[in-house]
């Protein structure tokens, strides 16, 4: 069954690459919604119901951890799987994301295989 996905990253290049990698990883993609930061992501989530969120951490206006916090605080969104895709590879950031409820963590640079492995069992 196709999965609608929200990709959140301040780099349009990374949003484009992630979309390509999801196809390479044979994810049954439905609608792909993009946002450039956490604020924009929350606005998109009010308009569109998605089955997966992939988000960067380091973004302007509202970062990925703040977005994750807001998603988990919303009864209508908290069950949506949330995966961090970021250069922030430090243990403290990983632990913070996991403690806030992220189901996975992919470090940039990434391969399609790594994304596929991370999504196995989630969607």
């Amino acid at each position: 069954m196709p999965v609608d996905v929200l990709i959140v990253d301040d780099s349009a290049a990374i949003r484009k690459i992630l979309q390509r990698v999801l196809v390479q990883a044979e994810v049954p993609l439905g609608q792909v919604v993009e946002a450039g930061d956490g604020v924009e992501a929350l606005a998109r989530l009010k308009e569109t119901k998605v089955g997966l969120i992939l988000s960067d951490i380091n973004m302007p206006n509202m970062d990925g951890l703040q977005l994750l916090n807001a998603v988990k605080a919303d009864d209508g969104l908290k069950s949506v799987p949330f995966i961090m895709v970021t250069t922030e590879g430090g243990t403290s950031k990983v632990m913070e994301a996991v403690n806030l409820g992220a189901v996975g963590y992919v470090k940039k640079p990434f391969t399609a295989e790594q994304i596929k492995e991370k999504l196995a069992g989630i969607i």
Partner: peptide, 10 residues
């Protein structure tokens, strides 16, 4: 640049 220096930071 973000990926290179982000990984250096890690």
């Amino acid at each position: 640049c973000n990926m290179i220096l982000g990984n250096v930071k890690t």
